[in-house]
Amino acid sequence: MEDALKKNLEKLLKEEGLNGRVTDLEYLTGGASNETWKFFFSSKTEKKHMIFRRSLGESSPMAISKRDEASIQQLAFKKGAPVAKIIAIADKDSTLGDAYIMKHIEGETIARKILRDKEYSQAKKKLAYECGEAIAKIHQVPINNFKNMQVSSPKDLIHQLYLTYEGFKQPLPVFEFAFKWLEDQDFGEPIEKLVHGDFRLGNLIISKNGLEAVIDWELAHIGNPIQDLGWICVNSWRFGHSKNIVGGFGEIDDLLSGYSSVCKNNITHEQIKTWQIFGTLRWGVICLIQTFSHLYGRTNSVEKAAIGRRVSETEIDLINLIFLGGK
């Protein structure tokens, strides 16, 4: 199977004018919906590692296609956001299916390592600022490129999330409370921007010098830009380092200064917190999606089964944020 994959990768690269050999194919991550491989490409003029990502059919309800993911990355790259350069996009009818190849970028993605290891202590000091900057650059991508993408107001988003939650028929009083509470909150000006949708450690390549690249664009959509700023503050993405509000490593003021250095705005801490609460609820519903895809899906996954018992983590966070004055 790996030999066939190598041949198909060589074929796709050849179509881009890159005539050479693919070796050292290494499986990096994957699940039921997609997988990521690393490989070495060598031709007369080039020798380098590349990354291959492809969809495996069973896509999650919120995810966009790999081809769309790649086109969005290309546009964000043009706006100067730290993004891996796209090398080739497969034709969806080809043997590779919905897939693309991008440049390999050195660095670490495992959140717990980045937050724990001394190697990253310098990088972490300016990471919140760099994240703000990167998020702002993503928000600069002109959205007229995405005519086929759904545009959702906060109200729409909450409603969609509620329908998904309700569909699982597992009543959660804290979620009901949060949904109702969110109805009357200030989500900021109704601006529409390209939103990454899952901007947090795990989806960021970090080196000892700082933020190298933003990856995993499958939840990208058009919506309110503050969503990305609130999402990275969700406690689940602090990976136990809960005192550092931004991603387990930084402060909101630094995130906002980075953001403002690229993009003028009047975003307040309160609005970010409202989106953080929305994000916490969104993560809770994503946990439910994962759980029920294990319960009703075709493949057994202990990881997805276990995530069902992480829903209560989002419940305690919602309580802490909404009526205990938590951060």
């Binding site: 406690n235 602090r238 809960s242 018992r309 992480r310 209560s312 983590e313 802490n320 938590g326």
Partner: peptide, 10 residues
């Protein structure tokens, strides 16, 4: 939480 994950920060 005392059952699901008593180590959770919050």
């Amino acid at each position: 939480l005392s059952v699901d994950n008593p180590n959770y920060s919050t």
